[in-house]
C-alpha cells in the first residue's frame, strides 16, 4: 500500500515518522501527479485555511475530492479533520474543505492556545488502554450524519470519528510517539477499504 501525506503545510514530518514506524514507506504529496500515485492519504495538522487555499491554487482540491468519493482511505488529524468535514463552523469566510465525511466540525472549539491541553482518553478500537491525546487549538465534532461512528470523546464532544474509509481525530497522535491511531488507520480502515475496491 502506498500512503501519501499531504505536504502543503503543517506537521508533515511527524506523520511521515509515525507511518514509517507502522512499516509504511510514505511519500509527500504536493502535486496532482503525486496524488495519483498513492492508495491512501494522511491530512496533517496545520492551519486548515492555509492548506485549503494552497490545495486550491495548486490544483489538488478537486482531485482529492474525486479520490475521496471514489473510496480512497484518508486519515486527518486536527486541521485534517476540518478538511475532511462536509461542513464547518467558525470558519474563515468562504473557507473550503475536501469534505466526504458527514460531520459538522467547529474550528478552535476547545479555545485558543492558552486552552490547549493533553489528556488520556479511551479510543474505541477494542483496547482498554488509554491513549495520550494532544489537543492544540483543537476542533470538535458538533454533528454527525448517519454512518459516522464516534471512536473517542472529551466532555461529550466527539474528537475521533470514522465513516467507512475516512478517519478523523481532533487531536495529534503524531506528536506522542504512540502509533496506535496510525496503525488503526492502516490495518482497520485503509486495508479493508482497499480490499473492497479491488
Amino acid at each position: 500500500m502506498k500512503v501519501g501525506v499531504l505536504a502543503l503545510q503543517g506537521d508533515v514530518r511527524e506523520h511521515l515518522s509515525a507511518l514509517i514506524a507502522c512499516g509504511i514507506d510514505p511519500v509527500q504529496v504536493r502535486r496532482p501527479s503525486e496524488l495519483a500515485e498513492v492508495d491512501a492519504l494522511v491530512l496533517p495538522g496545520g492551519e486548515s485555511t492555509t492548506i485549503a487555499q494552497l490545495a486550491e491554487i495548486f490544483g489538488l482540491l478537486e482531485p482529492i475530492r474525486t479520490r475521496i468519493s471514489s473510496g480512497m482511505p484518508v486519515y486527518g488529524s486536527c486541521a485534517g479533520m476540518i478538511l475532511l468535514a462536509d461542513s464547518i463552523l467558525d470558519a474563515k469566510e468562504g473557507q473550503k474543505t475536501f469534505g466526504g465525511l458527514d460531520i459538522t466540525v467547529r474550528r478552535n472549539a476547545f479555545g485558543r492556545q492558552v486552552d490547549s491541553f493533553e489528556s488520556d482518553i479511551t479510543f474505541a478500537d477494542g483496547s482498554a488502554d488509554l491513549i495520550k491525546a494532544v489537543f492544540i487549538r483543537a476542533p470538535w465534532v458538533e454533528q454527525i450524519g448517519p454512518g459516522v461512528k464516534v471512536l473517542a470523546s472529551v466532555d461529550a464532544h466527539p474528537v475521533a470519528v470514522r465513516s467507512d474509509h475516512l478517519l478523523a481525530t481532533s487531536f495529534h497522535p503524531e506528536l506522542t510517539g504512540d502509533h496506535r491511531i496510525h496503525r488503526y488507520f492502516i490495518e482497520e480502515v485503509a486495508k479493508p477499504a482497499l480490499e473492497k475496491v479491488k
Binding site: 503545510q9 506537521d11 496545520g46 492551519e47 487549538r137 506528536l175
Partner: peptide, 10 residues
C-alpha cells in the same frame, strides 16, 4: 512545542 509544529511550512 506542538503548536509550533503546526505552523511548519508556513
Amino acid at each position: 512545542r506542538g503548536m509550533a509544529e503546526m505552523l511548519k511550512g508556513g
